[in-house]
């Protein structure tokens, strides 16, 4: 517990943080004998950037997978917008306005950048098959709207130059950016980023940090992100959850977490890459 739990405050840089959007209650996730998440609770407020940090194997990705419906926890509850969420499949979670990226990039390698980003609009496409095939009226208008959003996202992330390039040919750093573009195209309420800066050089990391801040600032998108690099996390996030061996060992503002003895011992203190 800390001063910012429960939300409803204004940050030092003047962004408005709203009510609790998502609440994880006593989540436990096991894979056979391995306990990936042990009885963890935390919340995410509307409009905030929430980081999950911890050493390798701590269970961070597992937590993101629980939020996005890829994993179903054995115990615990997920609350979204004040309602308990029933067990859901990933596509159902996505349709609720939760978009994500993956630690090991999952893109449509055979498609162009533009087509990849366009798939982010699938949850917003409503016209039936027949009207789309005949290609008139409503379907056409919808298509135009979707294209507008996609072009906006492409401009925003500065990937105009590669919009027609097949994704399979892009270097790693750009792939990460395209994956973010696809998630953004869905105009999500909650954006989940699993190590968005992993494997990037310093310059790429700076770009990505700027994009994350801008997304949050300009679109008001709530963001939960996993990051390995402590420095980056401290700069970006409003609040941080610290995990270690499946347990939560810290939760609070970057400053609070930085000064938490357990966190220092378990995570900051130990030498890691």
């Amino acid at each position: 517990m800390n001063a910012l739990t429960g939300g409803n405050y204004t940050t030092a840089d003047g962004r408005k943080i709203g009510n609790t959007m998502m609440e994880m209650k006593n989540i436990t996730l096991r894979f056979g004998g391995v306990v990936a998440i042990k009885d963890i609770s935390f919340d995410i407020n509307e409009g905030e950037i929430r980081a999950i940090i911890g050493p390798n194997g701590a269970g961070k990705s597992s937590m993101l997978n629980v939020i996005s419906g890829f994993y179903n926890p054995q115990e615990g509850e997920v609350w979204f917008h004040g309602k308990k969420r029933p067990q859901m499949r990933p596509y159902q979670v996505a349709r609720q306005g939760i978009a994500r990226t993956f630690q090991n990039i999952a893109l449509f390698e055979g498609m162009s950048v533009l087509d990849n980003v366009m798939t982010g609009r699938l949850t917003h496409m409503k016209s039936g098959m027949l009207s789309q095939m005949i290609w008139k009226g409503k379907a056409e208008k919808e298509e135009t709207e979707n294209r507008e959003v996609v072009e906006k996202v492409i401009d925003f992330l500065e990937i105009q130059a590669i919009r027609k390039t097949p994704v399979g040919r892009l270097p790693y750093g750009l792939k990460k950016r395209v994956e973010l573009a696809r998630a953004l195209a869905a105009e999500p309420k909650l954006l989940l980023l699993d190590e968005p800066m992993a494997g990037m050089n310093v310059e790429e990391k700076e770009d990505m940090s700027r994009f994350i801040l801008d997304v949050n600032d300009e679109f008001g998108t709530t963001i939960a992100l996993i990051e390995h690099d402590m420095g980056v996390v401290m700069d970006l996030s409003d609040r941080v959850v610290v995990m270690d061996y499946g347990k939560k060992i810290g939760d609070g503002t970057p400053d609070e977490v930085r000064n938490n003895q357990e966190v220092i011992d378990a995570y900051l203190g130990v030498a890691h890459d």
């Binding site: 499949r89 990933p90 996505a94 978009a99 893109l107 798939t119 699938l122 949850t123 998630a183 869905a186």
Partner: peptide, 11 residues
Amino acid sequence: DDHQAALSVGI
């Protein structure tokens, strides 16, 4: 093309 990615965009 990719099952994981497809799930993540709501398919």
